[in-house]
Protein backbone atom coordinates (compact mmCIF):
# COMPACT_ATOMS: atom_id res chain seq x y z
CA UNK A 1 0.00 0.00 0.00
CA UNK A 2 1.22 3.51 -0.79
CA UNK A 3 0.62 6.39 1.59
CA UNK A 4 1.68 9.83 0.52
CA UNK A 5 2.10 13.28 2.02
CA UNK A 6 2.01 11.90 5.53
CA UNK A 7 4.02 14.11 7.81
CA UNK A 8 3.48 14.81 11.49
CA UNK A 9 5.40 15.49 14.68
CA UNK A 10 4.85 13.68 17.93
CA UNK A 11 5.81 15.74 20.96
CA UNK A 12 7.77 14.26 23.81
CA UNK A 13 5.58 12.95 26.59
CA UNK A 14 2.28 13.09 24.73
CA UNK A 15 -0.18 10.41 23.74
CA UNK A 16 -0.57 10.65 19.99
CA UNK A 17 -3.10 8.69 17.98
CA UNK A 18 -3.30 7.83 14.30
CA UNK A 19 -6.90 7.34 13.30
CA UNK A 20 -8.62 6.16 10.19
CA UNK A 21 -11.05 3.71 8.74
CA UNK A 22 -10.02 0.21 7.71
CA UNK A 23 -7.83 0.25 4.62
CA UNK A 24 -6.62 3.82 5.07
CA UNK A 25 -2.99 2.76 5.55
CA UNK A 26 -2.73 2.86 9.35
CA UNK A 27 -0.97 -0.50 9.56
CA UNK A 28 1.42 0.42 6.73
CA UNK A 29 2.26 3.68 8.50
CA UNK A 30 2.70 1.82 11.78
CA UNK A 31 5.12 -0.65 10.20
CA UNK A 32 7.06 2.14 8.51
CA UNK A 33 7.33 4.09 11.78
CA UNK A 34 8.56 1.07 13.70
CA UNK A 35 11.07 -0.22 11.17
CA UNK A 36 9.06 -3.29 10.18
CA UNK A 37 8.61 -2.02 6.64
CA UNK A 38 11.23 -0.48 4.37
CA UNK A 39 10.49 3.10 3.35
CA UNK A 40 10.80 3.92 -0.35
CA UNK A 41 10.55 7.64 0.16
CA UNK A 42 10.55 9.85 3.24
CA UNK A 43 12.11 9.46 6.66
CA UNK A 44 11.43 8.69 10.29
CA UNK A 45 13.12 11.06 12.74
CA UNK A 46 13.45 10.34 16.46
CA UNK A 47 14.99 13.04 18.64
CA UNK A 48 16.47 14.88 15.65
CA UNK A 49 18.09 11.75 14.30
CA UNK A 50 16.97 10.20 11.03
CA UNK A 51 16.49 6.59 12.04
CA UNK A 52 14.92 5.35 8.82
CA UNK A 53 14.73 6.60 5.26
CA UNK A 54 14.90 5.24 1.72
CA UNK A 55 17.61 2.62 1.83
CA UNK A 56 18.25 3.05 5.54
CA UNK A 57 16.72 0.67 8.05
CA UNK A 58 16.35 1.15 11.80
CA UNK A 59 19.62 0.57 13.59
CA UNK A 60 19.84 -1.55 16.72
CA UNK A 61 20.32 1.62 18.74
CA UNK A 62 17.23 3.24 17.22
CA UNK A 63 15.16 0.16 17.95
CA UNK A 64 16.25 0.35 21.58
CA UNK A 65 14.39 3.64 21.88
CA UNK A 66 11.04 2.18 20.91
CA UNK A 67 8.75 -0.50 22.26
CA UNK A 68 5.89 -2.06 20.33
CA UNK A 69 2.62 -3.59 21.45
CA UNK A 70 1.37 -5.64 18.53
CA UNK A 71 -2.29 -6.09 17.73
CA UNK A 72 -2.20 -9.77 18.67
CA UNK A 73 0.20 -9.25 21.57
CA UNK A 74 2.74 -11.44 19.77
CA UNK A 75 3.91 -13.10 22.97
CA UNK A 76 6.27 -16.01 22.40
CA UNK A 77 3.97 -18.94 22.96
CA UNK A 78 6.67 -21.32 24.17
CA UNK A 79 7.79 -18.96 26.97
CA UNK A 80 6.11 -18.08 30.23
CA UNK A 81 4.96 -14.53 30.90
CA UNK A 82 8.09 -13.85 32.97
CA UNK A 83 10.36 -15.30 30.27
CA UNK A 84 8.64 -13.17 27.66
CA UNK A 85 9.28 -10.01 29.67
CA UNK A 86 12.82 -11.11 30.50
CA UNK A 87 13.58 -11.97 26.87
CA UNK A 88 14.58 -8.45 25.65
CA UNK A 89 16.59 -7.92 28.83
CA UNK A 90 18.50 -11.15 28.34
CA UNK A 91 19.08 -10.52 24.65
CA UNK A 92 19.84 -6.83 24.66
CA UNK A 93 21.44 -6.06 28.02
CA UNK A 94 24.23 -7.38 30.19
CA UNK A 95 22.13 -7.35 33.35
CA UNK A 96 22.57 -10.27 35.73
CA UNK A 97 19.74 -12.76 36.21
CA UNK A 98 18.75 -11.48 39.70
CA UNK A 99 18.42 -7.93 38.35
CA UNK A 100 16.47 -9.14 35.33
CA UNK A 101 14.13 -11.01 37.65
CA UNK A 102 13.49 -7.85 39.63
CA UNK A 103 12.85 -5.83 36.48
CA UNK A 104 10.37 -8.48 35.32
CA UNK A 105 8.57 -8.36 38.66
CA UNK A 106 8.42 -4.57 38.47
CA UNK A 107 7.15 -4.45 34.89
CA UNK A 108 4.48 -7.06 35.53
CA UNK A 109 3.35 -5.13 38.59
CA UNK A 110 3.14 -1.94 36.51
CA UNK A 111 0.68 -3.58 34.14
CA UNK A 112 -1.26 -5.34 36.89
CA UNK A 113 -0.01 -8.86 36.23
CA UNK A 114 1.84 -9.56 39.47
CA UNK A 115 1.54 -13.25 40.31
CA UNK A 116 1.10 -14.36 36.70
CA UNK A 117 4.80 -14.83 36.05
CA UNK A 118 4.71 -18.57 35.48
CA UNK A 119 1.66 -18.62 33.21
CA UNK A 120 2.00 -19.45 29.53
CA UNK A 121 0.38 -16.95 27.14
CA UNK A 122 -2.27 -19.49 26.16
CA UNK A 123 -3.38 -19.67 29.80
CA UNK A 124 -4.16 -15.95 29.94
CA UNK A 125 -7.21 -14.03 28.78
CA UNK A 126 -6.94 -11.67 25.79
CA UNK A 127 -6.66 -8.63 28.05
CA UNK A 128 -3.96 -10.23 30.18
CA UNK A 129 -2.01 -11.22 27.07
CA UNK A 130 -2.07 -7.60 25.93
CA UNK A 131 -0.83 -6.50 29.35
CA UNK A 132 1.94 -9.08 29.35
CA UNK A 133 2.94 -7.94 25.85
CA UNK A 134 2.90 -4.37 27.12
CA UNK A 135 5.21 -5.35 29.99
CA UNK A 136 7.58 -6.92 27.46
CA UNK A 137 7.44 -3.81 25.26
CA UNK A 138 8.28 -1.69 28.32
CA UNK A 139 11.03 -3.94 29.61
CA UNK A 140 13.86 -1.91 28.07
CA UNK A 141 12.29 1.39 29.20
CA UNK A 142 11.77 2.72 25.69
CA UNK A 143 11.34 6.44 25.11
CA UNK A 144 8.43 5.81 22.75
CA UNK A 145 5.78 3.10 22.95
CA UNK A 146 3.84 2.17 19.83
CA UNK A 147 0.44 0.50 20.14
CA UNK A 148 -1.18 -1.24 17.18
CA UNK A 149 -4.94 -1.42 17.71
CA UNK A 150 -4.66 -1.99 21.49
CA UNK A 151 -8.44 -2.44 21.91
CA UNK A 152 -8.66 -5.10 19.22
CA UNK A 153 -10.42 -8.22 20.47
CA UNK A 154 -11.08 -6.81 23.94
CA UNK A 155 -14.44 -6.20 25.61
CA UNK A 156 -15.25 -2.56 26.50
CA UNK A 157 -14.35 -2.96 30.18
CA UNK A 158 -10.99 -4.64 29.51
CA UNK A 159 -10.34 -2.10 26.81
CA UNK A 160 -11.03 0.74 29.26
CA UNK A 161 -8.67 -0.87 31.78
CA UNK A 162 -5.95 -0.99 29.14
CA UNK A 163 -6.63 2.67 28.35
CA UNK A 164 -6.14 3.51 32.03
CA UNK A 165 -2.87 1.57 32.02
CA UNK A 166 -1.70 3.53 28.98
CA UNK A 167 -2.53 6.82 30.73
CA UNK A 168 -0.72 5.68 33.88
CA UNK A 169 2.41 4.72 31.95
CA UNK A 170 2.35 8.03 30.12
CA UNK A 171 1.87 10.09 33.27
CA UNK A 172 4.11 8.22 35.68
CA UNK A 173 6.97 7.22 33.37
CA UNK A 174 6.67 10.10 30.92
CA UNK A 175 6.80 7.69 27.98
CA UNK A 176 5.71 9.11 24.66
CA UNK A 177 2.92 6.97 23.27
CA UNK A 178 1.79 6.53 19.67
CA UNK A 179 -1.42 4.60 19.13
CA UNK A 180 -2.82 3.37 15.83
CA UNK A 181 -6.51 2.68 16.15
CA UNK A 182 -10.03 3.35 14.94
CA UNK A 183 -11.61 3.09 18.41
CA UNK A 184 -13.02 6.50 19.22
CA UNK A 185 -13.79 5.65 22.84
CA UNK A 186 -10.13 4.86 23.49
CA UNK A 187 -8.98 7.98 21.70
CA UNK A 188 -11.12 10.28 23.79
CA UNK A 189 -9.92 8.47 26.91
CA UNK A 190 -6.18 8.66 26.26
CA UNK A 191 -5.07 10.80 23.30
CA UNK A 192 -3.73 14.35 23.54
CA UNK A 193 -3.55 14.79 19.79
CA UNK A 194 -4.60 12.78 16.77
CA UNK A 195 -4.20 12.68 13.01
CA UNK A 196 -6.89 11.28 10.78
CA UNK A 197 -5.96 9.34 7.64
CA UNK A 198 -8.38 9.23 4.75
CA UNK A 199 -9.08 5.83 3.21
CA UNK A 200 -9.49 7.27 -0.28
CA UNK A 201 -6.53 9.63 -0.49
CA UNK A 202 -4.27 7.62 1.83
CA UNK A 203 -3.05 10.80 3.43
CA UNK A 204 -3.64 12.93 6.53
CA UNK A 205 -6.77 15.04 6.36
CA UNK A 206 -6.92 16.42 9.91
CA UNK A 207 -4.73 16.98 12.94
CA UNK A 208 -5.58 18.26 16.42
CA UNK A 209 -7.05 17.17 19.71
CA UNK A 210 -9.90 14.63 19.53
CA UNK A 211 -12.40 17.18 20.88
CA UNK A 212 -11.28 19.83 18.37
CA UNK A 213 -11.71 17.51 15.44
CA UNK A 214 -15.07 16.29 16.67
CA UNK A 215 -16.54 19.69 17.50
CA UNK A 216 -14.81 22.19 15.25
CA UNK A 217 -13.79 20.48 12.03
CA UNK A 218 -15.67 21.63 8.95
CA UNK A 219 -14.33 18.73 6.86
CA UNK A 220 -17.19 16.40 6.11
CA UNK A 221 -14.93 13.33 6.19
CA UNK A 222 -13.69 14.26 9.66
CA UNK A 223 -17.22 14.89 10.89
CA UNK A 224 -18.36 11.61 9.37
CA UNK A 225 -15.61 9.72 11.14
CA UNK A 226 -16.21 11.30 14.51
CA UNK A 227 -19.95 10.84 14.22
CA UNK A 228 -19.67 7.29 12.92
CA UNK A 229 -21.69 7.85 9.74
CA UNK A 230 -19.85 6.72 6.63
CA UNK A 231 -19.73 9.46 4.02
CA UNK A 232 -22.12 9.13 1.11
CA UNK A 233 -24.42 6.69 2.85
CA UNK A 234 -27.07 9.12 3.93
CA UNK A 235 -29.20 8.24 0.94
CA UNK A 236 -29.24 4.55 1.70
CA UNK A 237 -32.44 4.66 3.74
CA UNK A 238 -34.26 6.37 0.88
CA UNK A 239 -34.24 3.05 -0.97
CA UNK A 240 -34.02 4.46 -4.48
CA UNK A 241 -31.42 2.31 -6.14
CA UNK A 242 -30.74 2.12 -9.84
CA UNK A 243 -33.77 1.53 -11.94
CA UNK A 244 -35.85 0.20 -9.07
Amino acid sequence: MVIENVSFDVLEGEVFAILGRSGCGKSTLFKAMTGLLAIRNGEVVIEDEVVASAGKAFSEEALKRIGILFQSGALFSSMTVAENVAFPLRQRTTLSEPIIEQVVTLKLAEVGLAGKERFLPAELSGGMQKRAALARAMSLDPRILFFDEPSSGLDPITSAELDRTICTINQTLGTTIVIVTHELASIFAVADRVVLLDAGEKTIIAEGSPAELRDLSQDERVRDFFHRVPAGDEGRAAGDRGAL
Binding site: T34, G35, L36, F58, E60, L63, K64, I66, G67, I68, F70, A74, F76, F87, P88, Q91, R92, R136
Partner: peptide
Protein backbone atom coordinates in the same frame (compact mmCIF):
# COMPACT_ATOMS: atom_id res chain seq x y z
CA UNK B 1 7.91 -9.04 13.85
CA UNK B 2 8.26 -8.83 17.62
CA UNK B 3 11.80 -10.24 17.30
CA UNK B 4 12.66 -7.68 14.65
CA UNK B 5 11.24 -4.92 16.82
CA UNK B 6 13.57 -6.05 19.60
CA UNK B 7 16.50 -5.76 17.17
CA UNK B 8 16.95 -9.51 17.21
Amino acid sequence: DALRALAI
